[in-house]
Simulated assay, not measured.
Amino acid sequence: MADKQADPHHESAGAWAKKYHLATRMMMESVLRPHDLGPTQWYVLYQLATVGPTSQRDMGLLLQVERATLTGVVAALVRKGLVEQTTDPADQRQKVLTITKAGKALWRKLPDPIALILETAFADESEADIATTARVLRTATGRLTEWLSKGDDA
């Protein structure tokens, strides 16, 4: 019997979820590259442009990225003049991120890579099929997250 893990034609939902994730990441990088931004930088700008100033600690939790990764992303955005990093007056140990005027100007000109991905990926799919896909993946992700939160002895 063939080993399904080694089968390049593996057709499980998980295999397709991974392929979709990788394809969306490549498309997002392609759309943002001309603007000298990466996907994580875009998500930081998205949060700051749509929600407002956010603590760097909260940003890491929202984006689910390692502290060191976010530090580099924020440093790049600060160097580009798109984000300002200040000390939180309530807790001097924490940093608050705010989008700058230049960041707002760029944000207004940026294409929305998420909208483009959704329009392209789901162009001929029914709303019902899209809703079912989202529900199934949300439920599966919740179950996996719950299992992981129980630890290795689950």
Score class of each variant (00 low, 15 high):
residue 2 A to K: 12
residue 3 D to W: 00
residue 3 D to A: 02
residue 3 D to F: 03
residue 5 Q to V: 05
residue 6 A to L: 15
residue 6 A to V: 06
residue 6 A to N: 07
residue 7 D to G: 04
residue 8 P to S: 03
residue 8 P to I: 03
residue 8 P to W: 02
residue 8 P to A: 04
residue 9 H to D: 04
residue 10 H to P: 00
residue 10 H to F: 08
residue 13 A to S: 09
residue 17 A to E: 06
residue 18 K to Q: 13
residue 19 K to L: 08
residue 19 K to W: 00
residue 22 L to M: 13
residue 22 L to C: 06
residue 22 L to I: 09
residue 24 T to D: 14
residue 25 R to T: 11
residue 26 M to R: 15
residue 26 M to L: 15
residue 28 M to I: 09
residue 28 M to C: 14
residue 30 S to C: 09
residue 30 S to A: 14
residue 30 S to G: 08
residue 31 V to R: 04
residue 32 L to S: 00
residue 34 P to G: 06
residue 35 H to G: 03
residue 35 H to S: 10
residue 36 D to N: 14
residue 37 L to Y: 02
residue 38 G to A: 08
residue 39 P to A: 07
residue 40 T to K: 13
residue 43 Y to F: 10
residue 45 L to V: 01
residue 48 L to S: 03
residue 51 V to W: 05
residue 52 G to D: 07
residue 53 P to C: 00
residue 56 Q to M: 10
residue 57 R to N: 07
residue 57 R to I: 08
residue 58 D to P: 00
residue 61 L to W: 07
residue 62 L to W: 05
residue 64 Q to C: 13
residue 65 V to H: 05
residue 65 V to C: 08
residue 67 R to V: 10
residue 67 R to Q: 15
residue 68 A to Q: 15
residue 69 T to C: 09
residue 71 T to W: 09
residue 71 T to F: 10
residue 73 V to K: 05
residue 74 V to T: 04
residue 76 A to P: 04
residue 78 V to G: 03
residue 84 E to P: 02
residue 85 Q to S: 15
residue 85 Q to K: 15
residue 87 T to N: 04
residue 88 D to V: 06
residue 89 P to S: 01
residue 90 A to V: 07
residue 90 A to R: 14
residue 92 Q to I: 10
residue 93 R to L: 13
residue 94 Q to I: 09
residue 95 K to D: 11
residue 95 K to F: 12
residue 98 T to I: 02
residue 98 T to N: 08
residue 99 I to R: 02
residue 99 I to Y: 02
residue 99 I to W: 02
residue 102 A to C: 03
residue 102 A to H: 07
residue 103 G to D: 07
residue 104 K to S: 11
residue 105 A to M: 11
residue 106 L to R: 02
residue 108 R to V: 13
residue 110 L to K: 04
residue 113 P to A: 06
residue 114 I to N: 07
residue 116 L to W: 01
residue 117 I to Q: 03
residue 118 L to H: 15
residue 120 T to A: 14
residue 121 A to N: 08
residue 124 D to W: 01
residue 127 E to M: 08
residue 127 E to L: 10
residue 128 A to L: 11
residue 128 A to D: 15
residue 128 A to F: 11
residue 131 A to L: 10
residue 131 A to M: 05
residue 132 T to N: 13
residue 132 T to R: 14
residue 132 T to Q: 14
residue 134 A to G: 05
residue 135 R to V: 02
residue 136 V to Q: 09
residue 136 V to D: 07
residue 137 L to R: 08
residue 138 R to E: 09
residue 141 T to S: 13
residue 141 T to I: 06
residue 142 G to D: 12
residue 142 G to C: 06
residue 143 R to K: 11
residue 146 E to K: 12
residue 146 E to L: 14
residue 147 W to L: 15
residue 147 W to K: 14
residue 148 L to K: 03
residue 148 L to D: 12
residue 149 S to F: 08
residue 149 S to R: 15
residue 150 K to I: 05
residue 151 G to W: 11
residue 151 G to K: 00
residue 154 A to W: 10
residue 154 A to P: 06
